[in-house]
Simulated assay, not measured.
Amino acid sequence: MKTANPTTPRWPALPRLRQIAVVFIISLLIAWVTTPVFQSPFSLVLKRTTFIAMVMLLAFTFSGTWRLLWLPRWIPRWLVRVTAVCLLAPFASLTAYVAIAGGFMNFIRANNLLSGFATSTILALFFGSLVAVAAIKREDKQRERADRLQLELEKNALEREVLDARLRLLQAQIEPHFLFNTLANVQALVEAGSENAAPVLRHLIAYLRAAMPRLNDAEATLENEMQLVSAYLEIMHMRMPDRLQFELRLAPELKGLRFPAMALLTLVENAVRHGIDPSTEGGSIEVGGKQDANNIVTLWVADTGIGMAETAIPGTGLANVKARLQACFGKDARVDLHEQTLHGLRVELIFHPEVKA
């Protein structure tokens, strides 16, 4: 259940407690300064000044809350509020002096009260309009600040929705690509009549059962990703035991890091398909990750395969990984390609985990 804010009035036309406090302090200062002018006790001047100020405050809040239907729309709102304050000033002053005199006729007969009424009215008009204009400017600034904040919140919400939709689209591009490639590996073993076809198929089924629930997992971690990479490489190792070796080297502190599902696996799949598989000698794959003193995370997939041809153009897989990495960790996240010293390719994912898109 929501609790009411003590500074918020029950009715919108009534002033807030903060406004009442500010007006009372201003009334106190005006009464202290003008007491010698009126030649009256301070307490009497304070009561009269406070009454006039509170009536003008009611006029200010009422005219700012309720739409006056009989006024043309082209009249500025601030002008309506200042006019309301100025119109109420002489009536409030008159009411205060009539109450002091004990009746309207007594007020008319007392010349000193008439001069005091005129002075109070002039002071009320001056200070009332001045304070009203200052309050309107302050309200306008607060309204502009609130509008900017609301616009920023709406913008962030829209960007988050676009980001989520983009991630879902990129993820959808990976799922069929990965599935068809792994099934193609099984098909190749079956067509070749390899005795490893059945064991590989069993491992593949077990792998897919574990992998499929994680394909759309928004909370996937690097530890989850490394488990999938390990399972995939185990299957590929069974397919070509003499031509593929692999090593996983992930720093323990990175295991719980949120990471786009299947992104690292895409790089490993590319290393097998384009690096190790075409090579007559085979090779090894190293998958690892570390974090430096500046909290910059570097993940890598390095293979000793045939490497990348000079005329080769990075394909959809790398572009997809880069897009998902930047969507998750900001536009400064990058994918770097490095040729290995002898032969092979090293792909590095570099990002700051604390930077969000």
Rank of each mutant, 00 (worst) to 15 (best):
A184P: 00
A59P: 01
I205S: 15
K322R: 08
L267S: 13
Q227K: 01
A327W: 13
A198G: 01
Q19M: 01
K356A: 14
T3N: 12
L167Q: 13
A134V: 11
T49G: 14
L204W: 14
L342H: 00
R168C: 02
D292E: 08
E234T: 02
T34N: 10
Q340Y: 02
A309S: 14
R334I: 10
P176H: 07
R143S: 08
E191T: 01
R148F: 14
L325M: 05
P176T: 02
L158K: 10
L94S: 07
A293S: 07
I174K: 09
R324W: 07
V133I: 13
Q326S: 05
A165V: 02
L69H: 14
A188V: 02
R143W: 02
E281L: 07
R145M: 11
V80G: 04
S230Y: 00
K47N: 14
I306T: 14
K322T: 08
A206E: 15
D292Q: 06
A327H: 08
D292M: 06
W300F: 07
N106S: 09
L28T: 12
F259Q: 04
G116S: 13
L79F: 15
E154A: 15
H274T: 03
L228P: 01
I20A: 15
L318S: 08
G344M: 00
M56S: 10
A327I: 01
L87H: 02
S43M: 05
A188G: 08
V22F: 14
M1Q: 12
A21P: 06
L151K: 05
L222D: 01
L149C: 08
R273A: 11
L94R: 02
V80F: 07
L57W: 10
P36D: 11
L325R: 08
V23M: 15
A218M: 10
N196P: 06
T316V: 13
P9S: 11
G256L: 03
T83Q: 11
G102L: 02
A157S: 15
A92G: 15
H237A: 15
L94P: 01
N5C: 03
P199D: 13
K255L: 08
N216V: 00
E281P: 04
Q245D: 14
T35Y: 06
M226I: 01
V229S: 00
E161D: 12
Q150D: 06
R334F: 07
A53S: 15
L79V: 10
S194G: 06
A293R: 00
E310S: 15
Q326L: 01
G103W: 03
M226D: 02
A198N: 02
Y207F: 15
R48G: 13
T83W: 09
M262Q: 09
F351A: 06
N111F: 12
K255C: 06
R166H: 10
L244M: 05
I313N: 12
H274L: 07
L254Q: 11
A101D: 04
W78A: 10
A13K: 13
V98Y: 03
Q39V: 03
N156I: 01
D332P: 00
H237C: 14
A96L: 05
A4F: 05
Y207V: 04
L17T: 03
L44C: 03
V272C: 15
L257C: 09
